[in-house]
Amino acid sequence: MAVLKKLGLRQSFNKMKFSLAVADFLTGVQLLVVSIYNFSWTMNVTSMELDQRQLSLRGSAQATVGGIFLLLTFTSSLYHLVYMGAQRLYAIKWPMSYRLQKDFHITIGLVVVWLLALLSSTVPAWFPDVLVYTYNHNIFLFYISNAYYSSLHGTNFDTLIAIMICFNIIPYLAMTCATFVTLYSARRNIKKSKQLKHGKSANQKPVKVDSKEFEMCITVALMQLGFTMTIIPLVVINALFYGYSLTCDTASLPFLVCFYLSMSNSLVNIIVYSFRNKAFVKTAKEMLAIPICCPRKDDNIQTSYASRSTAGTQVS
């Protein structure tokens, strides 16, 4: 975030990356602070004490805040990628209109992204009779669970599945479609430009493709690909669990691995938008460089001059 701020937030893409970096930072807080704290006390209690603690936390204010915070780290990353993908499509399909877009519009868009992320993370709290936030000792974080369980009919996951479809799957599909359309349009424009350059269509005006915009499209596409690759295993595990192919006993370890793999998408974002930007890498190196205490050239000249002056004084 400090590097992006030093590069300048007046550029719309840098502003979007800075906002995404804030979302990635929240994921780091979730993993390095919340999960480690919960892991420490979970490992130091008996199974009976753990069960009592889980029952006391079920639906509590602490569990609700923790569950909303966890969902916010996921939805904020997803919605940022959706917004960035839509902006790249806008830039490729309607470049003139995109360039006339004011910085204020980008800020409003990012505010809407954060509001939608916060709103979607609170949706389970709207249905307290069906869903509840509770402590999940398998992942050492607060998570969503059904409010009731029937040994005869099992658990009804219809509400949870409907929420996932509306607030997660549909935005993801929209993001994927926008990315494919953007890359296809950019490639077609580049192909037309090459044909016109070689005189194959002399009557048509050349289609200009901004190389920086195309690089931004590739960067966003790589972040979305990383998001997809890290989230697919968790989706598969949840599908198997909701389809009753896995039980709580058999799904615990796979769910733990796939869950933390899905959280690594924030690390993928940092790697992609860092190493694909030469200015970012250069600025980061400058900020992380440790100054070495060595005399400068000017200092050497001054020291040498002072030594000669002292020696001359002693001789005289």
Rank of each mutant, 00 (worst) to 15 (best):
G154K: 07
L222K: 15
S56R: 12
Q224Y: 00
V22C: 10
V130H: 12
N14T: 06
M223G: 01
C293M: 11
A306D: 15
D158W: 10
Y149T: 13
V3D: 07
Y133V: 09
R276E: 03
V123L: 14
A2M: 04
S316F: 06
Y148T: 13
N203V: 07
A279R: 15
N189G: 15
M263E: 06
V29M: 04
I271T: 10
M48Q: 14
T134I: 04
P95G: 03
G312M: 06
R188W: 07
V113C: 07
L4Q: 12
Y83W: 08
T107I: 11
A23E: 01
L72M: 12
A178P: 04
K285H: 13
S35N: 08
Y305Q: 14
V236T: 04
C258D: 01
D51G: 10
L222D: 01
F127P: 09
M96C: 04
M16W: 05
T42Y: 11
M16Y: 07
F39T: 12
N238W: 01
G154Y: 09
N136T: 06
Q62D: 05
M48E: 14
A311K: 15
V235F: 11
I68F: 08
N300P: 00
Y305H: 09
M216K: 10
S266W: 00
G312E: 07
T179E: 02
N38P: 05
V268G: 05
S304W: 09
T46G: 15
I301A: 07
H105D: 09
Y98E: 15
S274C: 06
V65W: 14
N136Y: 07
S120M: 10
I301E: 12
N136F: 08
S193K: 13
A239T: 13
V112F: 14
L267T: 14
T73W: 03
G109A: 10
Y172G: 08
H198M: 11
L222R: 14
K5D: 02
Q87A: 10
P291Y: 09
Q30V: 03
A21Y: 03
A174F: 15
W94Q: 08
P171V: 14
K192S: 09
L256M: 10
I232R: 01
Y90R: 13
L131Y: 03
V112Q: 07
L173R: 02
A186C: 10
Q314E: 08
